[in-house]
Structure formats: C-alpha cells, structure tokens
C-alpha cells in the first residue's frame, strides 16, 4: 500500500450517472476515506479490461468501475457490456492469482451521492482488509 498502510484505489466513473453522483456526494459534504482517485470516462463501457490489469500490476490496491444502473445507460447499452466484461475480468484475475475483490463494479445514479460515499467507504475498508496488493510487479532494475 502507498504509505502508512493506506491503499490507493482508482475509480472510473461514467460522466452521466456516477460522476454526477460523486459530485452530489461532494455538494452534500459527505465524508469518505481519501484513498480513491476518480477518473471520468463518458461511459463505463470505455474502461478497457487492460486498464484494470495495468493498474493492479503497477501496484494500485484496487480498481472500481462505476456506471449507470442497468437500463439507465445514457448510451442505451454501454453498461451491459461493462457488466459482461467485469464478469470475465474477475475470473481472469482469480486465474492469475489476484484477489478479484480488488476489482469492483457498482451502479451509482446521478442522485445517489450517499450511495457513492457508502460504496467508496465499503470498498476502501474491504481493500484495506485484503492488505497490500501482492501482484505488484517489481520496479525495473538499475
């Protein structure tokens, strides 16, 4: 983990629902652990599985993908692709020997600021409980 046993967690949030939900959490001044960094994408389906693998193999302790609830995708069907990819990706992570809990997919709507805060808190706690990411690749020598 980064320092002082604090994890570093990368969060991809879709522009239309989850990023807005995260904004609402801010507007509502909901406090949550400070270990998550949100990256905005237009749709959760933009998140290439390689991003998750890259993040975990570089030592990040967790990756979270947040999208619109099923049926609510701004692009109609993007989050359905995300859901299918996530399922496969979790299997792949287990196969290569990494705790699949380090990768999480959740649905958060624009009005769910409180759910965003709760989700980030729960996931941070769960990843802290897992301990540091053991899959971290050794830094290049020299």
């Amino acid at each position: 983990m980064a320092s002082d046993d604090q994890p570093t967690i990368l969060v991809f949030a879709c522009n239309w629902c989850s990023y807005a939900g995260a904004d609402l959490a801010g507007v509502s001044r909901l406090e949550m652990p400070p270990h998550c960094q949100v990256v905005r994408v237009m749709c959760s389906a933009r998140v290439r599985p390689e991003f998750v693998i890259a993040a975990l193999s570089r030592g990040l302790d967790g990756v979270v993908v947040l999208g619109c609830h099923p049926g609510d995708c701004h692009y109609s069907e993007g989050n359905y692709y995300t859901r299918r990819r996530a399922l496969l990706l979790k299997g792949l992570l287990e196969y290569v020997g990494i705790e699949s809990e380090r990768f999480q997919l959740r649905w958060i709507s624009a009005s769910e600021g409180a759910k965003f805060a709760r989700t980030i808190t729960e996931i941070t706690d769960a990843i802290k409980a897992l301990g540091p990411n053991g899959w971290r690749q050794p830094p290049p020598e020299g």
């Binding site: 904004d23 801010g26 406090e31 400070p34 960094q37 805060a117």
Partner: peptide
C-alpha cells in the same frame, strides 16, 4: 476536480486531501 471529489468530501482530513489533490 479537487472540490466535489476532494476538499468537500475530506473536510476533516486536510493532510490527506492535500496529498490527494496533488495526485489528481
């Protein structure tokens, strides 16, 4: 975004919020 996603949600953790802002 260092307001909605940082200062407003970590109001009682100025050290962590400052580090997070740097990282973002």
């Amino acid at each position: 975004n260092i307001r909605e996603h940082c200062s407003w949600i970590h109001m009682h953790a100025p050290d962590e919020a400052t580090e997070k802002a740097k990282s973002l």
